[in-house]
Write a protein that binds this DNA or RNA. Structure first.
Length: 285
DNA sequence: CAAGTTACCTGACGGC
DNA sequence: TGCCGTCAGGTAACTT
């Protein structure tokens, strides 16, 4: 479910509920996520420490406590974090629950268990954090992501531009929905090789991507099936989808029927007229 | 080494 | 009603 905008919305929504709260107990369902959960370690490292910060990097949430420990949380496809009154009934697929000092609980719910919760111990959390995030590409909304950077990374890459945009080692936080939307608005076919885009096209991709991500964050993210923010409210950016999930419908721009095709193993939606497969070799480069 | 494929897991949906 | 196949927002290990 969650791509950069959804994780950002959750992060912002949780801030006021979590900051300065002391963790008084930790519950685990016993089922593992994508990586095993060490419940004993979660208890020993976090108990009676206070949450000092929460921020997003890529699709990860980084939560730090005053004893120097940290959690790196990923929501996978169906993960979510929410605040609930302490003691109320757990829901199906609630896998980790942190009781906080103000009589509330932070709960991690994840139907498919594709998410992950990594615990960084106080002694090594700083270097572990750096190492973990070093492998991930720059934030598309930050200044250190530029047209020049994307062009340079795309040199000699025969891979489709869509897979390239979704590669977390290249760019942080871009998933299937926003890759589809961005390429539609930029007028670029998802299967065009990354190395074949002109400077002008890369500029358009980055501009459109940033605009789309910001718009989605402002809308509270996209709700497909079950996404909700920390207060249990869905986002409404899905109302603004131009191409994602529109198979068989007329293109909003030109009326051509929207196509669906697997690209890099992921469902890809595009308009044949608005996103022509360009074999531009030298003219625009 | 780059790029494509598969596995991880549950649930919703459509066809029969 | 139910059984079966297909599909789903992500990531990383594996294969080619």
């Amino acid at each position: 479910m969650p791509e950069l905008p959804e994780v950002e919305v959750i992060c912002q929504g949780l801030q006021s509920h979590l900051l300065n709260q002391t963790i008084s107990s930790v519950y685990c369902s016993g089922k593992d996520l994508r990586i095993p959960i060490d419940c004993v370690a979660l208890q020993t490292e976090l108990l009676n420490s206070a949450i000092t910060s929460l921020r997003r990097r890529a699709k990860y949430l980084l939560l730090k406590t005053d004893n120097g420990a940290a959690l790196i949380i990923h929501l996978g496809m169906t993960g979510n974090l929410g605040i609930f009154p302490a003691g109320t009934a757990l829901k199906k697929h609630d896998h980790v629950c942190w009781t906080l000092g103000n009589n509330t609980e932070l709960r991690y719910n994840d139907t498919r268990r594709f998410g992950s919760i990594r615990l960084l111990k106080p002694e090594t959390s700083s270097s572990d954090e750096k190492a973990f995030f070093a492998a991930i590409g720059p934030e598309p909304l930050s200044r250190n992501c530029s047209t020049a950077y994307l062009m340079q990374r795309a040199v000699n890459r025969k891979q489709s531009v869509k897979s390239f945009l979704m590669d977390s080692h290249v760019l942080a936080g871009v998933g299937n929905i926003y890759a589809n939307e961005t390429l539609f608005k930029a007028g670029i076919h998802p299967e065009q090789p990354a190395s074949s885009l002109s400077a002008k096209q890369w500029e358009r991709v980055l501009t459109v991507l940033r605009k789309t991500l910001k718009h989605a964050i402002a809308c509270g993210g996209s709700t497909i099936s079950d996404f909700v923010n920390a207060s249990g409210e869905g986002g409404y950016f899905q109302m603004n989808f131009k191409i994602y999930g529109k198979t068989g419908e007329p293109c909003e721009t030109c009326g051509e029927i929207v196509q669906k095709k697997q690209v890099g193993g992921r469902a890809s939606f595009y308009c044949r007229k608005c996103q022509p497969i360009s074999t531009n070799t030298c003219d625009e480069r």
